[in-house]
Structure formats: structure tokens, C-alpha cells
């Protein structure tokens, strides 16, 4: 089977509030482009076939797998990675809650967890435990188990309510 020559195309992406045009091969996954062209290494690559959720980003406010999308498809969309959330000095309430509740160990799944939790809280400010578990069911963690993560999301809802 002949493979077409790798032609590059320009694509303008809106990432964490800033627009930038990058030159990509159409076959480049959004996850790889965010890491390698934008330097956003908070996009963690796990399984690369949509199972683990580690590469979860927000596209127009909704959680998606960045490994199941080509960068060229994301033109015109609003992309947020974990880097948009907070700084070590001033963390996002979701990040503070994960810290307080020990919602992470190795941290590999954490950006995906945090972003999915943020999307959930944006949609449902005060979710039930079942709603939290449902929302996070597409994000795998192999360290903590899920209990501390669920507690972290409950705590994040409190912190956000306190403002």
C-alpha cells in the first residue's frame, strides 16, 4: 500500500486563551501537537486509544480525549489544558482540593481527572457522589484508588461554593 507523502498544513488553534498557528501533518494527534508544538506537557499520554483518559483536555468546555482527535480537526475550537487552571502559588480550587484530599499519588492521571472534575463542576456545581463517579468513570487511576479522588471533587465543589 502506498503511503501519501507527509504534507504539512497550517492550523490555527486557540489554546489556553491564546491563538497560535502551527504547521502540522494531518495525522498528528492533538495530544502530540499540544505537547510537542505548544510545550504543554500536562497533556499526559497513556493508552493512545481512548481508554485511559490521561490525555483528557477541555474542548469548548467539554472533556475529550486529545489522542482521539487530529490537531487539524480542532481549528476554531477553544482548547484548555491543565496549564490553564492555576499556578503553584494560586491553584484552582479543584487543584487545591486534590492536594488537600490526597487525590493523587504518581500524578499521571491527575490532569485528566482535574479537567474532567472541572467540567463536571461547571455543569453541576454540587454533584452527588454517584454523579462524580459517573463523570470520572472514563479516567483510570492505578495508584490511589478512586475514593480520595471522589472526595477531592466533593471538596472542590465546597471550595468553589465558598468562592
Amino acid at each position: 500500500m502506498s503511503e501519501p507523502k507527509a504534507e504539512k498544513v497550517a492550523v490555527t488553534l486557540n489554546v489556553n486563551g491564546a491563538e497560535r498557528t502551527v504547521t502540522v501533518e494531518p495525522r498528528w494527534l492533538l495530544s502530540d501537537v499540544l505537547r510537542q508544538e505548544f510545550g504543554l506537557t500536562g497533556v499526559h499520554i497513556g493508552c493512545e486509544h481512548g481508554v485511559c483518559g490521561a490525555c483528557t483536555i477541555l474542548v469548548d468546555g467539554e472533556p475529550v480525549r486529545s489522542c482521539l482527535q487530529f490537531a487539524v480537526q480542532a481549528e476554531g475550537a477553544r482548547i484548555e489544558t491543565v496549564e490553564a487552571l492555576g499556578t503553584p502559588e494560586e491553584m484552582d480550587p479543584v487543584q487545591t482540593a486534590f492536594w488537600e484530599k490526597h487525590g493523587l499519588q504518581c500524578g499521571y492521571c491527575t490532569p485528566g481527572m482535574v479537567l474532567t472534575a472541572k467540567a463536571l463542576l461547571d455543569r453541576v456545581p454540587n454533584p452527588t457522589e454517584a454523579e462524580i463517579r459517573h463523570a470520572l468513570s472514563g479516567n483510570l487511576c492505578r495508584c490511589t484508588g478512586y475514593q480520595f479522588i471522589v472526595e477531592a471533587v466533593e471538596r472542590a465543589a465546597e471550595l468553589r461554593a465558598e468562592g
Partner: peptide, 21 residues
């Protein structure tokens, strides 16, 4: 949406030469 096609392409189980989005 690519949620079945892209994983198959990542695994190279699918190798389309032309993709029409």
C-alpha cells in the same frame, strides 16, 4: 467524531490514504 476510526488508525488497523472530515 473519530472515536472508533482514530483508535483504529492509531493502531494502524485502519490506513485510509484520504480522510474526508
Amino acid at each position: 467524531g473519530g472515536q472508533s476510526l482514530v483508535p483504529m488508525m492509531n493502531f494502524r488497523l485502519a490506513r485510509p490514504g484520504v480522510l474526508v472530515d
